[in-house]
Write a protein that binds this DNA or RNA. Structure first.
Length: 436
RNA sequence: GGAGGCGUCGCCUAGUCUGGUUUAUGGCGCCCGCCUGCUAAGCGGGUUUGGGGCUAAAACCCCAUCGAGGGUUCAAAUCCCUCCGCCUCCGCCA
């Protein structure tokens, strides 16, 4: 949710952002009107409530005097009874009106919030306008891998190595499920362990997180807006997370956290679940696009003014991981329309996949500024002692999909796969050899 | 799954039975000031959060907030209902 003050003070900024995203600009004026309506309605209600309270309080005072008089036998009991009754009636009349005004104020407030929540995060300077294909390429790192033999794709390699079993995955879980077997399982664990080791080295707190979350947590992160891609368990009204970002964003919900020692950095390890609705027929081969995978994810809470720098740091840590895996890749600045509601800017690192002859996303780092945190009520104490909403950011350190790039880029003519140097200590192997 | 207990403004805690004169008590912690050669002690004051109004910004005023949401009532921390969480015991299972 964006800050209503930003929208009030600088509606043009929000209009421009909406335009870049290809979203409705008219929402801005609707919200301004709803904000006006809500505030005046609230003022009316509160004024009358205040009056009703004071009248009602007077009843209490009269009742107190009456009780005392009854004890001592002094004073005009009948007159006092009458006073109390008059006040009671007046308060009762006011009470009915107050109830109406309260309902009206609640309705206006709900309308306002519903509209405000429709607005995506205000994009940052430099984010390209447009949709999925309108990204800017920021940098190429390394050269696309070339071979003096016909390279195999990751699934062919995975089967040769006894690393990936899609057929049995489909038997057990259906399409887009798989088993990682033998060196495949070891490879994934080694990679994720390496990611955690790097995170720890840079001061992150490793976290193993819930993968089922309550609706308000899923909603707070903004993922419920794209709910068709989220698994839901109706019996328990719980959602399966698509990333540990969800749980880590919920971790400090409704808290005022201490940021005086710097950003809070967490590295979440979790299984991730995605329905992949709307991608039927896309990436049906292998483990590029699956319903369930594992990921180590960085998640940061920091002061809003530090978010842009922190975003660069997250990108840097992703680059370090990709370098250790010895993969060629490019970095893109995702276009506004492809950001998702919560992000104000998103950088993806896409690794070269030789058999597809194109770059595929391996990491994604988003600066959500205060958008998620405002919904989740996560704040910090400023120098002046006030509370203010924190900024949240996230970025990928490793996922199951990386196996695709590792196998394909490091394959050798005999069907074996060279293990990147940095990964060797975690895997305990220098080469993955095909099964006999 | 069954029975019982509990949830109060950072932490602890009074208040709940018996609704009202309560701006929700007191202590600890923290902040500011006084005192002090320094520190401690002592003394005085402040210290939930969100929203609205007035402001250049404050001060200030108002509304809400006693786990959450409803209800009863002129009036709810207090009475009623639903839900959530924690604890104890029993049962079942790993």
């Amino acid at each position: 949710m964006i800050d209503i003050r930003v929208l009030r003070d600088n509606p043009d900024l929000v209009r421009a952002s909406q335009r870049a995203r290809g979203d409705d600009e008219g929402l801005v004026d609707q919200i301004l009107a709803a904000d006006e309506a809500r505030r005046s309605s609230l003022g009316e209600f509160e004024a009358l409530r205040s009056k009703q309270k004071s009248v009602s309080k007077n009843v209490g005072a009269v009742m107190g005097r009456l009780a005392k008089a009854k004890k001592t036998g002094d004073g005009d009991l009948t007159a006092m009874e009458a006073d109390a009754e008059t006040a009671r009636t007046e308060a009762s009349t006011l009470g009915a009106r107050v109830k109406e005004l309260e309902q009206a104020a609640d309705d206006q407030g709900a309308t306002f919030e519903r509209l405000l929540r429709k607005v995506g995060n205000v994009i940052l300077d430099g984010v390209p306008s447009g949709g999925e294909d309108d990204f800017t390429v920021l940098e190429h790192v390394g050269e696309p891998t070339t071979f003096d033999f016909e390279p195999l794709d990751h699934l062919a390699l995975g089967e040769k190595l006894g690393a990936i079993d899609m057929e049995r995955g489909a038997k057990v879980g259906g399409a887009r499920f798989y088993f990682l077997t033998g060196v495949g399982a070891r490879l994934e664990l080694a990679m994720l362990n390496m990611a955690v080791a790097q995170a720890v080295e840079y001061g992150f707190t490793p976290m193993i997180t819930p993968t089922l979350v309550k609706p308000e947590i899923m909603d707070g992160t903004g993922y419920l807006d794209a709910h068709e891609d989220v698994y839901h368990l109706p019996t328990d009204d719980l959602y399966l997370v698509g990333t540990s970002e969800v749980a880590l964003a919920g971790y400090h919900k409704d808290e005022i956290i201490d940021l005086t020692a710097g950003p809070r950095r967490y590295a979440g390890w979790s299984t991730c679940y995605r329905r992949e609705a709307g991608s039927h027929g896309k990436d049906t081969r292998g483990i590029i696009r699956v319903h369930q995978f594992q990921k180590v994810e960085m998640f940061v809470y920091c002061k809003p003014e530090d978010a842009v720098d922190e975003h660069q740091r997250l990108l840097g840590w992703e680059r370090e991981m990709l370098a250790k895996m010895e993969l060629p890749y490019r970095i893109i600045d995702t276009a506004a329309g492809d950001l998702g509601g919560s992000a104000a800017r998103k950088f993806d690192c896409e690794a070269w996949v030789p058999t597809q002859e194109r770059y595929r996303e391996l990491t994604s780092t988003s600066n959500c500024t205060t958008y998620q945190a405002r919904r989740l009520g996560t704040r910090y104490r400023t120098e002046s002692g006030k509370t203010d909403t924190v900024a949240t950011l996230n970025g990928t350190l490793a996922t199951t999909r990386w196996i695709v790039a590792i196998l394909e880029n490091h394959q050798q003519a005999d069907g074996s796969v060279r293990v990147p140097k940095a990964l060797q200590p975690f895997l305990g192997l220098e080469v993955l050899e095909p099964l006999a």
